[in-house]
């Protein structure tokens, strides 16, 4: 496991997309803040971070696909996947590497929000640390859950195009609005009260806020953990059944 992690971290450091995505995550807050400022709006640091997070999720979702798909696309997987004792080692190494990167991404986003709010908005006026940290923690877990889903897509479909399209649709909100909401409405009309919040990391991410109730935050955490367990297990099964290369 240590060997795989060392390799994946090394590869991540060598990719240009690693730094570009971190920069884009940083820039999310700046872009969002400038738009608000242009409309003469006011927003606190916390609100700016929350508002920017959906755009940040889009960028990091794209990075997940690129990172996970690169070994398959360039064939390097042939050099490594056959040497590990278990495919779960290979999968977990990728997941842990992305988990580390997600921390970097969230840190970049938070830093961007902080700088912009200090320069152009009301700074950290009204900032409450505990709800903000809780928010970041749940957001982090949801992004990791989402990365597990993307891992499953990439290793099942074996290319980056379809997972990229699905990832972009979901994180941009289009997927949620085009797919989830109509299904929920239709089910509602049939008398079934179903909310995709109970199975979708992305929907939880869109609804997440610093004043989200404790119960809803717990649901979000459960959905994220469920994603991590279910999709990593499914990915392992796919790797066992399908040819690796």
């Amino acid at each position: 496991m240590f060997g795989n992690l060392s390799l994946d971290m090394f590869v991540m450091k060598k990719k240009k997309s690693t730094y570009i995505t971190a920069l884009l995550m940083f820039a999310c807050a700046l872009l969002t803040g400038m738009l608000i400022r242009a409309n003469s709006g006011e927003m606190t640091f916390t609100e700016l971070t929350v508002q920017s997070s959906s755009l940040a999720a889009l960028f990091i979702g794209i990075y997940y696909v690129m990172f996970l798909g690169s070994d398959i696309k360039n064939g390097f997987i042939k050099n490594t996947a056959g040497t590990v004792k278990s495919s779960m080692v290979y999968i977990l190494s990728k997941e842990i590497t992305l988990a580390v990167y997600t921390i970097v991404g969230i840190a970049a986003l938070t830093l961007g929000s902080f700088i912009l709010s200090a320069l152009l908005l009301d700074g950290t006026k009204g900032f409450e640390a505990v709800p903000f940290i809780k928010y970041l923690g749940v957001m982090y877990l949801l992004l990791i859950g989402f990365s597990s889903f993307i891992t499953f897509l990439v290793f099942t479909i074996r290319n980056t195009v379809a997972p990229m399209v699905i990832g972009v649709l979901l994180t941009s909100g289009a997927g949620v609005n085009i797919i989830y909401t109509p299904i929920e409405v239709l089910l509602g009309k049939a008398g079934v009260n179903f909310d995709f919040r109970y199975i979708s990391c992305v929907k939880n991410l869109m609804l997440l806020n610093t004043d989200t109730s404790g119960k809803d935050m717990l649901i979000a955490c459960a959905v994220a953990v469920g994603h991590i367990i279910v999709f990593n297990t499914l990915t392992k099964l796919v790797m066992q059944k399908k040819d690796i290369a």
Binding site: L7, K14, K15, S70, F76, I77, K78, N79, T83, K85
Partner: peptide, 29 residues
């Protein structure tokens, strides 16, 4: 499993990395 080295079909390489870095990446394994 680790005692086999293989070259199957096209070589799997990281296009953005030098030969040295490609070999270093695998060595880290």
């Amino acid at each position: 499993r680790a005692k086999i080295g293989n070259l199957i079909e096209d070589p799997g390489i990281y296009a953005n990395m030098s030969a040295f870095d490609n070999l270093k990446a695998k060595a880290k394994l």
